[in-house]
Design a protein around this nucleic acid. Structure first.
Lengths: 168, 168
DNA sequence: TAAAACCCTAGTAATCAGATAGGCTTTTAT
DNA sequence: ATAAAAGCCTATCTGATTACTAGGGTTTTA
């Protein structure tokens, strides 16, 4: 499985929506600005996420996007599969299982591919947006049950230049 | 990491050379015929494998290709990295570590990417051609030391699985 | 010295990645 | 009622990558 820039953008947008989960709909423009993503491209991505029912939209003035489920119930695998396809390094799990049954000559190779897929699935199907999104930007209040994410909260400052520079 | 057809062809060719490791140089044509691969494309692939010193060639009539090391000393990760690049699902390990250090906002996401990479690396850096190539076709053709493979290749059990069983 | 075989550089068609453009529809505020 | 704001949706574009194919050059063997 390869994660494309599009897939990364989707994950970043979803993380941002997770952080603001209690704030109602967020405009595309605001997501694009804060995450430093190309606005029109992001629009397409959000459309796909909406069609896959991972987010929902509010139309018209004061509209925007929000998660359809709490961050703790959205797995990274859902987003990655939607945008970048199967987690397997070659084909998909079903195809690999078929090849393992049918292609005696290369069976052991496909078995390794499937192992790699299973290892990725194990991680990505158990990690949720709540695990990685960062602090809910709403006030501290109560009942925030974020998991690990290593205690300390990040010093802010988002700078475009750094992000842009990481485009390979 | 995504394995392309080219990468698959390389792995198949290497498996075939591993099976015939004791038989001296094998012609491109024979590899292509037996593995059913496009001959001229395979030629390019073998050239790359040669430049990476995974195989060596014998030129002229009676020439061909053979492994430079015994199958048990050639890891799948070497072949895959050569043909299809880094094992990480995004960028490479070094880049991910850099992002984890620098990009506080997305640190947790990149950490997950790195976990996925490490899981793939663990498998592919420990599996060799000897583990998957099948019986050495030298001598009396059939099944010699095949069982060690079975025990090595699948001991990982996924708990709380979301998918349907991986058979076995 | 001719045939066999690898060496190496090019080229190419099709697809994909990463966007951009712009008109259409829905909702809100005045 | 109407203009502005915002998402909806389809089309198009450019460059890179993938999966090959072509063909002449060089080395070795019989």
């Amino acid at each position: 499985m390869k994660i494309s820039h599009k897939g990364l953008y989707a994950l970043q947008a979803m993380m941002m929506l997770a952080r603001r989960h209690d704030q109602g709909a967020i405009r595309i423009r605001d997501i694009a600005y804060e995450e430093v993503l190309p606005e029109k491209f992001l629009e397409l991505i959000l459309l796909e996420l909406k069609n896959a029912r991972l987010v929902e939209s509010v139309r018209g003035a004061k509209g925007g996007y929000q998660l359809r489920r709490p961050p703790s119930e959205i797995h990274l695998s859902e987003i990655i599969r939607l945008i970048d396809g199967p987690l397997a390094p070659f084909g998909d799990a079903e195809q690999l299982r078929h090849l393992i049954d049918r292609d005696a000559e290369h069976r052991a190779l496909y078995r390794v591919f499937l192992q790699v897929r299973d290892a990725a699935a194990k991680i990505l199907e158990h990690t949720t947006l709540a695990d990685i999104a960062g602090p809910d930007s709403a006030k501290s209040g109560r009942g925030q049950r974020r998991k690990k994410l290593e205690s300390r909260v990040l010093p802010m400052v988002v700078h475009r230049s750094v992000r842009k520079g990481t485009r390979e």
